[in-house]
Nucleic acid binder design. Structure first.
Lengths: 226, 226
DNA sequence: AGACGCATGTCACCATCGTGTCACGGCGTG
DNA sequence: CACGCCGTGACACGATGGTGACATGCGTCT
């Protein structure tokens, strides 16, 4: 299955060059010409990797990076920068960028770095038997495990628990959970979340009356505790 | 999501220049032409950052700065000054301005400083732990901690303590607390604040008879001491 | 110093909101 | 067709927020 790459770059000639080369490498490509469009496409297409220019119209690459990382930690992000500013580089990496290239760059090198980033990510996702306490997920096989023993789970249950395990200790509103797990354009009621939380609790909690992992934060939403 | 910047500047040509440049950088912009309007817009729009000229009609920039800082410590404020007076600079910074530029200035430098201020602010807001003395808050997880041990807290209690921790050493009236924590359109009696203060004291004070952290300022309101 | 007045501390109470739970209908899949 | 999953609505229960009444204490004025 081809991996999807989102290119966020306003210079048409650079964009064309990247599309040519990456297309030949067999990636699925999506392109945005400014920051806002980039952010939107990142949300809708959920690419595996994003090539992100820093100098962009409408919304700077740094802000796009920040916005994406605020919502999602899985996507690899490779930054393109036109000026060789160390400060920007450090900031970008500290904001969660995976790699950083300064223009002008060789396309071959960029492709190599993209491959490396995707490889790292795959290994993480793959090795990422997400595991917290007695609960773990076999992400590849989409299995839910309790002390290593498999627990039957449905698709949604799995996705929700995966999101929780990926963000331990953070309280989320029902709206946020709905956005993150069901997708940004899904429309549903808060009750749905409650139901899935209840189902998850019955599967992974010792005592579903007094949940230890998925805790209710009254007035806010839910939090997964490590 | 784009950050909002409020420009308070009476010189139309400078204002135009700032609007052009900052607009291109992707910020949402709000503009005021005198001090009073600036203060009003600061209250209604809650911008992330304010660019504030010192020489203004109706109300001097220094007074606007003072008024804003009396109500709110989160907004970044960058001062523009037409004369190079060291005294003004020191005063402005001591009143809580984040940065200070003297005209004439390069727009690029101003943009850079604005970005830097916003970055600092982000980091402060984002760093998930507020901590003063033995009391700390896990903001992301919405947990209240005493010496690292969790203390049960409700949503309102948490919000109120969070506000106190964010503004140590400053005395607030009940009205101000109500505004800031409950929201500007909430309607409630002063008794409510007393009650929540009392509840917080029982949770975080050694001796709730003789509170050390949340002190009563008779005739005024309450103050949180570091 | 004493007394008065006002601001604050405290308590109990209740309406309301938030959450857990259940049952049901629709939809897609085997 | 039948089954399982998903999502919604209804309902009940408990926590919570907010209010008023009352107690207390501080400051001030005489």
């Amino acid at each position: 299955m081809a991996e999807t790459i989102l290119l966020v770059e306003d210079d048409p000639s650079i964009l064309r060059g990247l599309q040519m080369n990456l297309g030949l490498e067999g990636f699925r490509l999506v392109a945005a010409h400014d920051g806002e469009e980039g952010l939107k496409l990142a949300r809708t297409h959920k690419p595996d990797l994003i090539v992100l220019d820093l100098m962009l119209p409408k919304m700077s690459g740094m802000d796009v990076l920040r916005a994406i990382r605020a919502e999602d930690h899985d996507t690899s992000i490779v930054i393109l920068s036109s000026k060789d500013q160390e400060g920007e580089k450090v900031l970008a990496l500290s904001l969660g960028a995976d790699d950083y290239m300064t223009k002008p760059f060789g396309v071959a090198e960029l492709v190599a770095r993209i491959r490396a980033s995707l490889r790292r990510r795959r290994r993480n996702v793959r090795s990422g038997e997400l595991s917290v306490g007695r609960v773990s997920l076999d992400v590849e096989g989409r299995r839910m495990l309790q002390d290593g023993r498999e627990v039957e789970s449905t698709a949604r249950e799995f996705d929700l628990l995966k999101f929780f395990l990926s963000h331990p200790g953070v309280a989320f509103s029902r709206e946020q959970l709905m956005q993150q797990v069901w997708g940004p354009d899904h429309f549903g009621t808060a009750r749905t979340i409650d139901n899935f939380v209840a189902r998850l609790r019955q599967k992974i909690e010792e005592d579903s009356e007094d949940p230890k992992y998925i805790e209710t934060v009254r007035g806010i939403g839910y939090r997964f505790n490590p």
